[in-house]
Design a protein around this nucleic acid. Structure first.
Lengths: 188, 188
DNA sequence: GTCTATAACCGGATAGAC
DNA sequence: GTCTATCCGGTTATAGAC
């Protein structure tokens, strides 16, 4: 693997673990086993490197989610599979995590992959919920967008509870709660 | 207001806005209009000051939540009122926010108010849900703890979506979604 | 209790050699 | 493409005067 890619991979990992502000070029260089010269040769600076790393993380998240959301099974089954998919809940969401970083929110280049990815996710979930309603699986009185936002929020908020507790249990409970509520809204 | 209290208030505000790692003693001093001498006279250092400030934020959050959760109305009404209570969703949760800060999670003194407060919240919500079931308001097949975790996660995750989008709308949608799902689980 | 001075270190970045 | 040297400013804290 070339130096440029090692720098990107190291940055993605550190952004996930520590966020943008707390990730120094120095730490990235160490993790990537690259010198300062390499970093500033391949990238204009910290923000430039982070922006490209973040775009990669966003793409990966989308691919992983799409594999389930566009996968097999009825719409309602796919929503439930999205919720119950195995997650390393103590690590949190590599994209959602960035919303706590003020520097990310004030930089258009850093914020864009975050906002676009989460907007895409809610959109896709809302589409699936509408499909489930059209197929007669889910009660028609639910607003698809509101339900989708609630599903995505349960995952994002579950990470918060799990990290606060230092335990995966609150996350699993939150997912169970969402699944139970959704099943209660199934037709039949 | 005395200098010590001004330092605590300024710290609480900055912790909310920027987190622990990104908040410097210098910024606190400026916001509190206090000198370095004052800070290190009243507190042992940054962590000591932040720990006391965080305890204050936690207490305030608990008081505000308790005013609704222990307030008037039936158990189910109070849960819904907790969800729909007005919130400055772009600011996020002053306590939940801290879970994104690695330094907070690795310090027992800083982590404790965060974990205890969120655990208390989920506990209290679970109690209310059990009460609603006992009163025949809510279907008995929901697990109280799972449902409570889902409710708390919806709020915490709603903040993430709102901050990512730079708009309060995703938060409001998530709350609406949770309310609709809960209403669907009402008896009768 | 509060002030100023200073220390020791780290952050992000640039310069120029190789 | 990568290296080392260097710059400037900020962070966290201590020392000692007032």
């Amino acid at each position: 693997m070339d130096t440029r890619q090692r720098l990107l991979d190291a940055t993605r990992e550190l952004l996930w673990q520590r966020g943008y502000a707390a990730t120094s070029p120095n730490a990235i260089m160490k993790a990537a086993r690259a010198g300062q010269g390499s970093l500033y040769h391949h990238f204009a600076g910290k923000e430039d490197l982070a922006a490209e790393a973040l775009r990669g993380s966003a793409e990966q998240l989308r691919e992983e989610a799409a594999a389930i959301l566009d996968g097999e099974g009825s719409p309602a089954e796919r929503i439930e599979r999205y919720l119950t998919r195995e997650r390393d809940s103590l690590r949190g969401c590599r994209i959602g995590r960035m919303t706590a970083d003020a520097d990310v929110l004030t930089s258009d280049r850093l914020r864009q992959p975050v906002s676009e990815t989460l907007a895409w996710l809610v959109d896709r979930l809302a589409g699936l919920i509408a499909d489930a309603q059209a197929a007669g699986e889910l009660r028609a009185d639910l607003d698809p967008r509101a339900t989708a936002s609630c599903v995505a929020s349960t995952v994002q908020g579950g990470y918060v509870l799990a990290r606060a507790a230092g335990s995966t249990e609150p996350f699993d409970q939150a997912i169970t709660g969402a699944v139970q509520l959704l099943r209660g809204a199934m037709v039949g």
